[in-house]
């Protein structure tokens, strides 16, 4: 089926691209049209540090119609129902376009968390609180993030997580090729980025490797 091929491509793309932080997987291997996506709450918001899980149902004529998305994780936010997780977002309805993807839709949800729009609410009670008592709204949003999304506690990132952030999506073996020459990881990653090397590649053509080394030497 037409739709299936595109969904597979999208899932592959998301599992390869670690830098966006948007992830999705099939809920039940028999049904490609039902997915579960998740992402981190945006930094410097009450949702920071939480993990937000989204239930995704793809209609048969996807991508010509938008995916049906609903927050599985409970969220205190004016554009998301505090009861059902239903989402009010134009990109997921009238403003949908078939060049958008599950990943871009999840990115839009992450931006929605960072930019609540109380004038066009999904949940009137939450919107009222946000407008009338912003401090109380922030506290409650934070409380829900801690209780339902696992935020808070500010656990320090694990060693593996630190390393993953440091590599910024580049493969360990690729970076090691350069750190083996005596350069620091941070410098290698920034040189790879500067030379326009795609994330996830395992080896470089000679001229590209040369360009990366040039940058490393230039930066010393």
């Amino acid at each position: 089926m037409a739709t299936k091929r595109r969904i597979l491509k999208e899932l592959e793309d998301m599992s390869r691209d670690r830098s966006s932080g948007m992830q999705a997987e099939v809920v039940d291997s028999d049904n490609m049209m039902h997915l579960r996506g998740w992402f981190e709450g945006p930094p410097d918001t009450p949702y920071a540090g939480g993990t937000y899980v989204v239930d995704i149902v793809l209609p048969d004529n996807y991508p010509f119609v938008p995916p049906k998305m609903r927050f599985e994780t409970r969220v205190w936010h004016p554009n998301i129902s505090s009861q059902t997780g239903a989402i009010c977002l134009d990109t997921l309805s009238a403003k949908w376009s078939p060049v958008l993807t599950i990943k871009t839709a999840l990115l839009s949800l992450q931006s929605l968390l960072a930019a609540p729009e109380p004038s066009d609410p999904q949940d009137a009670e939450v919107a009222q609180m946000m407008l009338n008592d912003p401090a109380r709204f922030d506290a409650k949003a934070r409380e829900w993030a801690t209780r339902y999304a696992g935020a808070g506690d500010a656990a320090p990132p694990s060693e593996a997580e630190k390393r993953r952030r440091e590599l910024d999506g580049y493969s360990e073996s690729l970076v090691e090729g350069f750190t083996g020459m005596g350069f620091e990881t941070r410098a290698v990653v920034s040189a790879l980025r500067g030379a326009g090397v795609k994330r996830g590649v395992e080896s470089l053509a000679e001229d590209m490797a040369g360009r990366v080394v040039e940058r490393l030497i230039g930066g010393m």
């Binding site: 091929r5 595109r6 491509k9 991508p63 060049v99």
Partner: peptide
């Protein structure tokens, strides 16, 4: 290397 934005092929 360009793909159709709709079907991604």
């Amino acid at each position: 290397d360009d793909v159709c934005g709709i079907c991604r092929v």
